[in-house]
Amino acid sequence: MSSIPDYMTVKHRECDDTFAEAESAVAKNNWSLAKEKWQLFTTDLDLHFEAEETILFPQFEKATGIIAGPTQVMRSEHEQMRVLVQGLNKALSENKKDEFLGLSDTLMVLMQQHNMKEEMMLYPMSQQHIPMELDILKQLKEHCEAVLN
């Protein structure tokens, strides 16, 4: 993965896959597997949001001078997703299948729309505008690996 769009898109897919595994486990009433997969998903999601909000977005804003633009929208959508995750956490902790699945459908739609905006617009713009000497990709990878280790 030699570019911001490539690396961050792979991270999106990893989150999506774990999310789908958790959702499938809930649908089958396999609560222990659901909780295990959900914990992995929320950890990855938090890590991804943190990498964007503390590394990528500030560098994009600095490089472009665009502050009240795509990064502002992305941060707002992150907050919307965090609220949904809280509701999902509660539903999962109480083994409320229908509530979880209803909220998970909403979260999935929001994530898909959000990811498309980042993958088609923000990530390519970041790759184009952030100076190469900052090696933003290395910073993103180091952040993710440092937290996981």
Rank of each mutant, 00 (worst) to 15 (best):
V85N: 03
D17M: 12
Q127A: 05
D44L: 14
E52G: 00
L84Q: 09
E61H: 00
A68C: 10
E21R: 15
M108H: 11
K62M: 08
E118Q: 03
L40G: 07
G102Y: 00
L134R: 11
L56R: 06
L33S: 14
K11E: 15
D135Y: 05
A27K: 07
P124C: 04
I67R: 13
N29H: 11
K62S: 13
I136V: 15
R75L: 10
E145N: 10
S3K: 06
K90A: 15
C15H: 00
L110M: 09
C144D: 11
D105P: 08
Q127N: 08
Q80I: 08
V26H: 01
N115C: 07
K37T: 01
K97I: 00
M116T: 13
V73D: 02
E21A: 14
A34S: 02
L107D: 00
C144L: 09
T54S: 15
N29A: 12
T43F: 10
E61M: 11
A63V: 05
L45M: 12
N89C: 06
E133F: 12
L134F: 07
A27N: 14
Q113N: 13
L101P: 00
P58F: 06
R75A: 10
F57T: 01
R75W: 15
R13Q: 15
M8D: 03
T43L: 11
T71G: 00
F41A: 04
L137F: 02
K28P: 03
M8K: 06
A20W: 08
T42H: 07
M108Q: 15
L134E: 14
D6P: 05
K90L: 12
D44I: 02
V10S: 13
T64W: 01
M116R: 13
K35N: 10
Y123P: 01
K90D: 14
L84V: 04
Q59Y: 13
P131R: 06
Q39W: 07
E77F: 02
Q59L: 15
E133L: 12
S32F: 07
S32M: 09
K117S: 03
C15S: 14
A27S: 15
F41S: 06
N89R: 08
Y7F: 11
K90Y: 07
P5V: 07
P5Q: 12
G87A: 03
A51I: 01
I4Q: 07
N29Q: 09
A22P: 04
V85L: 00
M81C: 15
M74D: 02
C144I: 10
V10H: 14
A20D: 15
E14D: 15
V26G: 06
Q86E: 10
M120Q: 15
G65L: 03
P70H: 10
A146I: 02
Q139L: 12
S2C: 09
I4G: 09
T106D: 08
F60W: 11
F100L: 01
K11P: 03
L107R: 01
D105M: 11
E52R: 07
E99N: 09
L47E: 04
M81R: 05
N115L: 09
C15G: 09
A146N: 08
E119M: 06
W31K: 04
N95S: 10
L84G: 02
K138E: 11
Q113C: 12
E133P: 00
Y123V: 04
E99R: 02
E50D: 13
V26F: 07
E79W: 08
A146Y: 09
L92M: 07
L107M: 02
K138H: 08
A146H: 09
M108V: 11
Q128C: 03
N115H: 06
D135G: 05
K117T: 03
E79V: 05
Q112S: 11
